[in-house]
């Protein structure tokens, strides 16, 4: 923009600092957006989106909207994105995470149209706003009146009705979410602790499943448990996740590491806990 022309229109000159902020954060926001679309993992997508939103929040502050900037960071990135992550955790990973396209031509057409749209709208905006003067908000805020006061003044006068209607919208959304997420259960149909316990002992495996990562270097959910002989315990596989390849600890080899044979034999006193799973019930008098 022509600086002289802007000054002649009574506009505000955009400072160098803002330009620096824009050129730093703009690419970061773009990168976040692209990362969100491109990353396989939905959790990564969410984190990329948080990145973009934070950048946008800074843009708001820079553009004389500190209130919106704060709301963007606190409510959007703080609350809404956490909600996303909650649901992601609830739903877990599934085949939809795969980035293989199933609709024929969808990806190509989408990208082509995206380029076309971005080009057309970008060109249109650039053409229409190249001489847009920056009036600035000094007249309505700054000085005595803060940004929040300026917004509040309009919100509770001109936009009062819309504001009130918004409350109805929010309560409707809250009730709607409760109705949708709620599962109707008849009272008494939920199994009690006693029933669950009884059912567990009627199975072949009353004890808990083995935890992951035993004797392994990883404590990831994807890492399976190992048996003492080094085999993988299939019981410990997490559902829906390919078991991770586990790097085993190097086997102890030297005498010092293995210890004495007596020590490794342990005590000769039999204990109940020596019977695996307590399954040798027949021989044990009760």
């Amino acid at each position: 923009m022509n600086v002289l022309a802007a000054a002649a229109d009574g506009g505000v000159q955009i400072g160098t600092g803002e330009a620096v902020v824009f050129w730093v954060l703009g690419p970061i926001a773009l990168a976040g957006a692209l990362g969100m679309v491109l990353s396989r993992n939905a959790v990564h997508s969410a984190l990329w989106l948080v990145n973009t939103m934070l950048a946008l929040g800074v843009f708001y502050v820079v553009q004389e909207a500190p209130f919106l900037g704060a709301v963007q960071i606190i409510v959007y990135t703080g609350a809404i994105m956490i909600l996303f992550l909650f649901v992601l955790m609830l739903v877990g990973r599934d085949s939809s995470d795969s980035v293989v396209e199933t609709l024929r031509g969808q990806r190509v057409a989408g990208i082509l149209l995206g380029f076309g749209f971005a080009g057309l709208v970008g060109a249109g905006i650039a053409r229409a706003t190249q001489d847009l003067p920056v009036t600035g908000l000094d007249a309505v805020q700054g000085g005595e009146t803060s940004n929040i006061e300026a917004i509040a003044e309009l919100l509770f006068t001109r936009y009062l009705l819309a504001f009130e209607v918004t409350s109805a919208l929010l309560i409707t959304a809250a009730v709607g979410a409760m109705v949708l997420a709620h599962i109707e259960r008849d009272p008494g149909t939920r199994p009690t602790q006693k029933e669950l316990s009884r059912a567990r002992f009627l199975t072949d495996r009353p004890q808990t499943l083995p935890g992951p990562g035993v004797y392994a270097r990883a404590n990831s959910v994807a890492a399976p448990a190992l048996l003492p002989d080094g085999r993988v315990t299939e019981d410990s596989f997490a559902t829906g996740i390919d078991p991770q390849e586990v790097d085993q600890m190097p086997r102890p080899t030297g005498r010092a590491e293995l210890g004495t044979p007596d020590a490794s034999l342990g005590s000769l006193e039999p204990t109940v806990s020596d019977v695996p799973g307590g399954q040798d019930a027949g021989s044990t008098p009760r």
Partner: peptide, 14 residues
């Protein structure tokens, strides 16, 4: 640097 930059960035993000 002008406001057009913000708008174009918004268009691209959109």
């Amino acid at each position: 640097m002008s406001l057009t930059h913000y708008l174009v960035l918004a268009a691209i993000l959109f």
